[in-house]
Design a binder for these strands. Sequence first.
DNA 1: CGCCCTATGTATAAAAT
DNA 2: TATTTTATACATAGGGC
Lengths: 196, 196
Amino acid sequence: MGRRKVEIKRIENKSSRQVTFSKRRKGLIEKARQLSILCESSIAVVAVSGSGKLYDSASGDNMSKIIDRYEIHHADELKALDLAEKIRNYLPHKELLEIVQSKLEESNVDNVSVDSLISMEEQLETALSVIRAKKTELMMEDMKSLQEREKLLIEENQILASQMGKKTFLVIEGDRGMSRENGSGNKVPETLSLLK
Amino acid sequence: MGRRKVEIKRIENKSSRQVTFSKRRKGLIEKARQLSILCESSIAVVAVSGSGKLYDSASGDNMSKIIDRYEIHHADELKALDLAEKIRNYLPHKELLEIVQSKLEESNVDNVSVDSLISMEEQLETALSVIRAKKTELMMEDMKSLQEREKLLIEENQILASQMGKKTFLVIEGDRGMSRENGSGNKVPETLSLLK
DNA sequence: CGCCCTATGTATAAAAT
DNA sequence: TATTTTATACATAGGGC
């Protein structure tokens, strides 16, 4: 699209690379804007230059909503983890999305009744609430178990310390609590991945 | 770029809108790919069609890294401002609710302009996003500090236990770590109240 | 940088398959 | 619907401010 054809490979000259980055980035973002308007869609573009500078644009909706959408869509990737089971129980929204999409696709959008759209919106929002509530609940559980374990550990320490203070002769119970940590120690990181 | 000039406005005909979406989306993603190669940069594109289907591409790096980058970039911006300040800026929602309610009550519902309702909705949603993001962030911080403290306590225990195992005579350092707990012990409950 | 300019390679609208 | 074709509008390379 210029005076001559360019091969698609890294531009070696630094300054023309930068000029091209600036021009094409601008073009890309303009194309995204046009696409979002022409086809009433939401388009997010995030560009990180070679030098680490960040440029972004969101058309049709705000960036965080588009990213949320992306992340929800890729929640499927979480299936690799065993907590996918938990999530699945609270995820009737996937089916809902499918219903919405098929309704919107099979019929002319204009023909979908406002009432049915309202009802779908409500269903989606309910699903979201359930998911968010569950997320919070799971986090609270983790916090609680961490706090309980902390409490136990503090007690341990006090017992051990006081025993030392008394110059105890018997150490039989010295490791009483330690074994309790094992096995549950990795529960938290596992559940943390829900927070993404 | 076609047989005729197109105005940049929503394409009314559903099927040509869809054809255009498909073509331009493909073009956009190809442009992103070229830009990433020509200028050794990372470009993420996320597109959500009107019917809710998601299309994405990441060039130069993987999507989650690019999104992370975006989020880190914007997290810094949040930190620059005082948190409370930030929330206050995005939280006229109490007032907003009152305005919405009074508008809906004092006037016939039909007289409230759709635009003003849309704007109120957007403000409410923005406020919600900010609050949710902050909620998650705070919970993550708490989890992290709890985990760190747990680690410290476990180390304490091990040291204490091993000292007892060796039938130590000197107990001078027996309470070394205990004091460390005090003062930070109530940070968590405090912050927990934010989670409601 | 960012913007202007012009020549030219590309993207794509419309139509057909 | 996705692809292909063709004519045409657009984006942009190279160059200069």
